[in-house]
Simulated scan of single mutants.
Amino acid sequence: MKSEKDKISLWIKKNALPLSLSLIIIGGYFVYQSNEYSVSSRTISSVFNGKITESIIYQLNKTKPFLDIFANVCLTLGIALFISAFFIRYIEEDERKQLEEKLSKFQEDTAKDAILSVFKTIIDMNFFSIIQKDLLNAKSIRKNANWQYDISEIEDSGTVKLLLKRTVSYEFHNISQSQVEESIRFRSNNNEHCKTDIISAKVRHPSGNEENIELIDDKDADGNGDGKKFIYLHKNICIDPEKSIEVVLVFTQLFSHGYIYETHSSRHPIINLMITVNIPKNYNFELFHTFSSKARLKIDEPDKRVYVVNGAIFKGQGVEFTCYNKHKGISKN
């Protein structure tokens, strides 16, 4: 059963516009019809300094006063009905949006519950708990990562060494309805195998603005007292709901033994990855991966390789790769 309030609201919504227009038209018509006046006059006498003076005052009088009142009533009711209909439609639109948001949230929760039920029946619980934590309950996601390796020869003190320039980028998307924080960290130390230098680190915002991340040199950063020099950066970025940023990190590694053996793994789950490798002539490049999804070799040229991974990459999954001279192989001498 609809309440009287609902019935009135429904009636106003259906009939207010034509009725208000009708009343406004009728009111305008009667305003025009009542716009007739009669002229009356009267004589006013006054005495000033013993002299009598007379003044004639003319006055306009409406000939149809009740018709004028009726016209004003029609105009007032018509405008009031029009405004009422506007506010009712505005309120209903706002309520409709709120209902759609609630239905969307309900559908998401229902879909998530269905996925949880299916996964629990076909996947080992230990593995399922990882998926649930990293993907299903995640408030953010990293997408469209690019790992670019540019390898070149350089001569240092009469010795040919290999320089690996890494450009790592990814998109960080906040998929929740609350603000989240992305912690950007990188640390590397110089050792007898290679020397690391950070070229740049920045954050690109949707507005197009770029925010540089400060680089820090620190000795004995791990507290072991061995005096080793570490290079690291650390910055926390707050991302608003349903917004995203792009993180770009560029650093180089100089390998002193004439070959490269390195690993690269993700600290967080990623959706979609492209690996681009540029290598000098007369060098072999070999890559092995631990991804759950297939790494497709999109471009296979003597000086360029491009690998594409479509789908999810879980925390800890990554690659190991080697690069060495075809004629010398891998040797520390």
Rank of each mutant, 00 (worst) to 15 (best):
K2V: 06
S3E: 08
L10Q: 14
I12T: 04
K14I: 05
N15E: 09
P18Q: 12
G28A: 00
R42Q: 11
S46C: 10
K51H: 11
I52V: 14
T53Q: 09
I57R: 09
P65R: 08
F66L: 13
D68P: 00
D68K: 00
I83C: 12
A85S: 12
E92W: 14
L99V: 07
E101T: 06
K102W: 02
Q107K: 13
A111I: 05
K112M: 10
F119W: 00
D124E: 07
I131Q: 10
K133R: 15
L135D: 02
A138G: 04
A145W: 02
D150W: 00
D156A: 04
L163N: 06
E171C: 04
H173S: 01
I175E: 01
I184Q: 02
K195E: 15
D197M: 10
V203K: 08
K219F: 15
D220V: 10
D222Y: 15
D222K: 15
I231E: 05
I231P: 05
H234K: 11
H234P: 01
I237A: 01
I239E: 03
D240I: 06
K243A: 11
V247Y: 06
V248A: 13
V248C: 10
L249Y: 10
L249F: 09
V250T: 08
Y261T: 03
T263D: 05
I270H: 12
I270Q: 06
M274K: 12
P280A: 13
P280E: 05
N282S: 11
N284T: 15
S293A: 07
K298N: 11
D300W: 04
Y307K: 01
K315P: 05
Q317T: 10
V319Q: 02
E320N: 06
C323M: 09
N325E: 10
N325F: 00
K326N: 07
K328S: 05
S331H: 07
